[in-house]
Design a protein around this nucleic acid. Structure first.
Lengths: 333, 333
DNA sequence: CTGAAAGCGCTAACAG
DNA sequence: CTGTTAGCGCTTTCAG
């Protein structure tokens, strides 16, 4: 690692002061075009690169954002991350990726690490419900935060209309005549998933739905489905999965049990990830605008960076995507 | 943003010098346990958080790594990213995510930005072949780099045995009796994909394979497949896709054309992403250890950070995963 | 074992 | 328009 080239070197070489170099480089006003060009030329010749660490130390801005999600391998988050990265990049920021695996400790460690690096903002789908102490700790770090799985609260939020989605799911299944269904979803108290669950249960007739909580993943979906399928004389005619990833796991289990979707059992997902269309049968699901979620989230994060910016709460619309995994309920009882 | 708490505050409060605070905090030798504890207590009470930017400025280490990939939405890269993030985290580093979309300019912009932030290393699947000038520029920035899609060259590399994979694919298809096949893959000169292609073509009989280059994505796969299927009286009996994502697109197109896999046409993928098993039919593919790739890559990156560390070249094994998308060739000619 | 002092590379008043 | 002067918050010799 040979010595780093600094503005001092440029200053000496160009016969000006470092402050002049600094101003030339950052394109500030009050520099004769002539000198600026000269400085720039020298900088170029010396192959100079600003040290953004040093700059950040004095300006207090890192131009870095943190994204804390459960697991980037969930295609929904992948899409969110991509939207976030694109928006961050458009604003000249970098994005650091953190996988919390829904672990509260890990999540707080990430927050601390990001705070230590003085990121300009943090984007997170906070695990579980934040207790009072955690909320205070988050507020205390004094960094803009936007939550991806809350609709209200002390922080800014941007998320899809999960409640509407849950209701939509119930109405659709009801319309198809399903009266005994299972809802297989991730851990309880998860914000998004919980909202879907509540709205879904509420919109269904009393006692018509069995809810199972498990791991929020392909494997989790498979396991929950196995439990359901192995249970008492199967009475359910449809399964509403908390998201598509879980739905894929459910599908795997159903196929393994030599049952047919939707003939033997209907399956409804949530998210609308790309692969839902090539799975067999193509998955009927509730679409949520994942990419836009990430995008909007960093945009509001950036806005929060300004002085006195008020908290914002955005809710994006969802939509039923009808494919072939749901059919009218058959009289199995 | 209320005033930041610094070691100065702690020093004053604890009645010691800042250097003592610094030493206590970084757990250095030569501090009486007594004073150290006192300092730590004060730090805790004041809710102090090191400013890693400031620390980085003097130590020259940012504890941040950069990951530049084509697109995080490709499940293969998702898995690589997860492996990389886990390994980075284990080493106390953060990972910044960059999507190059295979654009050379964008890639170099990212490299420049990361270099400006003085990251400790960069992990990338470099787009296309690097020309001499680019190589020199990369070497000039003086940051450890490991490439994810090369097997040799001036930089350290870690990637799967793509050549063996290509050969494996050819041998398998040959064994099944396929003598007219298409290879649908991403852009030419892409490192990994190119290696697969070359080895595949080489292992197949002369003139038995038609190669198409397209976009490296689901959509790209679909388009290429449409072209192939629409072509002259279809003579091919099998398609080898450059990777699973492309294969999924191909599958979509085949289904859309009302053809059956593998009855009408066999389909072979590469990567072995999780969803390959629930697609219908389950995808036969060449497995490569994506997660480990990411993991190993940051581990070698970290090693390169040490003084005088020699470049390393790792090649990880691949393996045929036989599912149900390939069948013996039928006599269609 | 601890304090004093220098400085990482840069920006930001304040003069001139 | 440009130079001078202070630091940003931290680590790191070098003394003592």
């Amino acid at each position: 690692m040979q010595k780093e080239i600094t503005i001092k070197d440029i200053a000496r070489e160009a016969g000006v002061d470092v402050s002049t170099v600094s101003r030339s480089l950052s394109g500030a006003y009050g520099i004769k075009a002539d000198t600026r060009n000269r400085v720039l030329a020298v900088a170029q010749r010396l192959n100079y690169r600003v040290n953004r660490v040093a700059r950040g130390l004095v300006t207090g801005r890192s131009h870095t954002l943190g994204l804390i999600i459960s697991d980037i391998r969930n295609p929904f988050f992948t899409e969110v991350a991509r939207g976030a990265e694109d928006a961050a990049r458009a604003a000249g920021c970098d994005l650091v990726l953190c996988n919390s695996d829904q672990d509260a400790t890990r999540q707080m460690e990430y927050v601390a690490a990001l705070a230590g690096k003085r990121v300009d903002g943090i984007l997170m789908n906070s695990v579980a419900v934040l207790d009072k102490e955690q909320k205070e700790r988050l507020e205390a770090i004094g960094i803009p935060i936007v939550l991806l799985n809350r609709t209200r609260g002390p922080f800014s939020t941007v998320c899809a209309d999960n409640k509407a989605g849950g209701t939509l799911a119930a109405e659709y299944l009801l319309k198809l005549g399903h009266r005994k269904v299972a809802h297989l979803t991730g851990p309880a108290r998860h914000g998004n998933l919980t909202d879907r669950e509540k709205a879904f249960v509420k919109a269904m007739p009393p006692d018509s739905v069995t809810v199972l909580h498990g791991e929020n993943s392909f494997a989790g979906g498979r396991e929950m489905a196995q439990t359901v399928l192995a249970g008492q004389p199967r009475r359910i005619t449809a399964i509403f999965a908390g998201n598509d990833t879980i739905a894929f796991g459910v599908l795997r289990a159903i196929l393994d049990a030599n049952l047919k979707v939707p003939d033997d059992i209907s399956l409804l997902g949530f998210d609308n990830v790309e692969l839902g269309s090539i799975v067999q049968p193509p998955l009927t699901t509730i679409h949520q605008p994942s990419y836009e979620l990430g995008q909007r989230a960093v945009e509001t994060l950036l806005r929060l960076g300004k002085k006195d910016a008020p908290a914002e709460n955005h809710v994006l619309p969802v939509q039923l995507i009808e494919r072939q995994s749901c059919a009218p309920a058959t009289q199995k009882i």
